[in-house]
Design a protein around this nucleic acid. Structure first.
Lengths: 198, 198
DNA sequence: TGTACATCAGTGAACGCGCGTTCACTGATGTAC
DNA sequence: TGTACATCAGTGAACGCGCGTTCACTGATGTAC
C-alpha cells in the first residue's frame, strides 16, 4: 500500500498534480485515473479527499488563483515602480509558461461551459480579478506620472492580459523552438511604447 | 422523416452548426446528439456524412480556417493601406465575437491535446498561419513607411493576435454588459501608438 | 513502555451512466426505359 | 407521361467502451489507559 498521508497534505499534493495535468492537456483531457497515478494512488483513493472530479477541479482552481494573484503581488512588491512591476509580471508569466505551467491554457480550458455552471463562472471571476489588479498597476503608473494619463486603463490592462496568451499557444505548437522569453521582451517593448509617457 | 438533402449540402449545414456549438461550449461540451438536433436530424444520421465525431471536428476546423483567413484577406483588399487593414481586421474580429462566433474560444478549446494528436496540430497550424498573415501586413506597413521600421514584426503580430483574446473571455463572462466594440477601439488606439511611425 | 481500540487513508472489484457508433430497415428521390 | 428500379439519406433500437463513482474490506497510524 502507498504511504498514508493525512487528508490536508494529500489534498495539496493532489491539487498540485492536477494543475500540472491541466496545463498539459486542458480540462477536457483531465481524468481521475491519470491524476491518481501521478500521485501514486489508485483512482478510488481520490474520493477519500474530494467529493468527485468537479470538486478536484474547483479546489485546483483555488490553487491556480492564489498562484496567479501571488505573481501580481510579488511583482508589485519587488519592483520599484508600477511600470517595472508590469514588466516583471510579464517576465514571470513567460517563465511560468516556459516551465510548463501554461496559465492561459488553463484559463481557456476551464472556462468552457458545461453542465456544472459553477466552474466557468469561477474561472471568469479569476480572470476579471486578474485584469482588475493589472488595471490597478496601470492607474498607479498614471498617478506616478510614468504612464500617459490620456489612455484608458482598462484597455491597457486587457492589452497586457492578451500579450502572453498567443505565446502560450505557440509554445505548445512549436515547443522549445519558440523562444518565449524573447517574445516577452519584444512584446513588452511595444507595450511600453504604447503606454509610457515618452 | 426530415427532408432529405444531398451529402454535400448536408455537410455544409452540419459543419456550420458545429461551429456555432463549438463557439458556445468548446470542444469539450460538443456532442453528436446536440449537433444532430441543431440541424433537425437524429444522431445516427450524422454518420451518413461523416466518419465520426473527430471527422466532424476536422471538417469544421476547415470551415473555421477559411473564415478566419477570409477575414484577413477581406481586410487587406478593402483597406487603403496596411495599418487601416489591421484596424479593419480587429473591428471585424470584434464584431464576429459580438455575434457569437467566439474565434479565440474555438481556437483554445480545439487545441487541447487528446488521443487524436491530429486536431491540436491542425489548430496550431491555423493559428501560426494567421499570425504569419498579420505579420505580413505589419511588414507591408513597414515598407510603405506607415509602421516603424525598428519594431519586430513577429512581436507586433503576436501582440495583435492577443488583443482580441481577453475580450472574448470577458464577453463570455459579462455578456451584453461588456462593450466589445468599445474595447476594440480602445485597444487599437494603444496598438497604433506602439507600432505607427511617430 | 506496552497493549487494545478507534480512526481513517488506501485498495480493488463492480456498477452504471453518457455518449459515440453500428446496423438492419424505411421510404423519398432521381433515373432508365 | 408513366412505371420499375436503384440509390441513398434518414431512422430507431441496441451495443459497448471509457470513465467517474461506490462500497466492503484492509491495514497502518495515532491515542487512551
Amino acid at each position: 500500500m502507498t504511504q498514508k498521508m493525512n487528508t490536508e497534505a494529500r489534498r495539496e499534493q493532489i491539487t498540485g498534480a492536477a494543475l500540472v495535468l491541466l496545463a498539459e492537456r486542458g480540462s477536457e483531457g483531465f481524468n481521475i485515473a491519470d491524476l491518481a497515478e501521478s500521485v501514486g494512488l489508485v483512482p478510488s483513493a481520490i474520493y477519500r479527499h474530494f467529493e468527485g472530479r468537479e470538486d478536484v477541479l474547483d479546489a485546483t482552481l483555488d490553487v491556480f488563483r492564489d498562484r496567479v494573484y501571488g505573481l501580481v503581488e510579488a511583482a508589485r512588491n519587488e519592483a520599484e515602480d508600477p511600470l517595472q512591476a508590469l514588466e516583471l509580471l510579464l517576465t514571470r508569466h513567460a517563465r511560468l509558461i516556459e516551465s510548463g505551467g501554461a496559465v492561459p491554457h488553463i484559463m481557456a480550458s476551464m472556462s468552457a461551459p458545461d453542465r456544472h455552471a459553477a466552474r466557468p463562472a469561477k474561472t471568469q471571476k479569476i480572470f476579471t480579478g486578474y485584469v482588475a489588479r493589472v488595471e490597478r498597476l496601470v492607474r498607479d503608473g498614471q498617478e506616478s506620472g510614468q504612464v500617459r494619463s490620456d489612455i484608458d486603463s482598462t484597455s491597457a490592462a486587457l492589452l497586457f492580459a492578451g500579450m502572453i496568451q498567443p505565446a502560450a499557444l505557440l509554445r505548445h505548437a512549436e515547443g522549445e523552438r519558440f523562444d518565449i522569453m524573447a517574445h516577452a521582451a519584444g512584446v513588452w517593448e511595444l507595450f511600453r511604447r504604447a503606454v509610457a509617457r515618452d
